[in-house]
Amino acid sequence: MATLRTIRLRIRGTKNIKQITRAMEAVSAVKMRKSQSVALAARPYATAALNILKSVAQGAARMDTTHPFFKTPQNDEILLLVVTSDKGLAGSFNTNVLKRAMEFMKEIEEQGKKIRVVAIGKRAAEFFQKRKRQPEQSFRGLGDSVNLADVSGLFQKVGEWAKRYEAVHICYTNFLSVMRQEVVVRKLLPFSEEGLEEMVKGIVPEKGKFADNDANSAKETANTTNKAREYLFEPSSKEIFDAMLPALLNIQIYHAILEANASEHSSRMVAMRSATNNAGELIKHYTMSQNKARQAMINKELAEITGGSEALAS
């Protein structure tokens, strides 16, 4: 049995851990609220952007455009953007993303295509380096509610990628609620109506606290209309494509990162809360054994004293 001293030490240690995890919970709660509001505020914009993109994609399909975002080279090389966090201790947040990414990569490789990754977040970069898959590029420091300007380094690369890869996918965590996040893989490039449709549907959860009814109804109307008539592009389709497509693509990536951030902080907060609870349990458990050990010692001493006095009396 552990001695009284070691138990006391353990209790002290656990209490320290509990304090730390509680502080981390509080910190991530604040960050979560912030990143959540940023992500939720960006949703109507992202939905509207995707709807416009869809109209453009319809128009482009008719016009047989050669814009690199629609016509990517057929070279069997696929690029995957993986969005993780820079820091750990966020429960299964990063594990889930990386697991999904690995699954996706295996699928692609089984089709006989080559795949490269772009790591967003330190965790992804380290993960892929360890597995001998040098990331094409890695980005970090995008964890705390980014501005559009912070992501510009990433955006500059996108045009290049469109010319080099057959398709670009992004693997990120969609924020559904504090307790529920969903890892998704979405196709960014080339633009296709089906891919965009899927993204629009993915943005807003169907029900629950964060289901924005306005956005949901907007999705429906967008689906039923717009089929019949052709769009005019002003000043010209080429100029519109050149200016608008990169901007809207950037919005998609930016939005994915925002969702991932909200998910990261929620996930960390939940993980830290359960860590705090577990530490509490552990302290209770240790206190119990400490009391037992103390009582056992007292009993032993009492027995010794009574035993001694009886020996003297006789």
């Binding site: 717009n226 008539r229 005019l232 002003e234 000043p235 100029e239 519109i240």
Partner: peptide, 16 residues
């Protein structure tokens, strides 16, 4: 390319 005014039943248009 200049100011435009959009009225109801405008033709579908995308512009910068």
């Amino acid at each position: 390319v200049g100011e435009i005014t959009v009225l109801p039943h405008h033709a579908p248009l995308i512009s910068h």
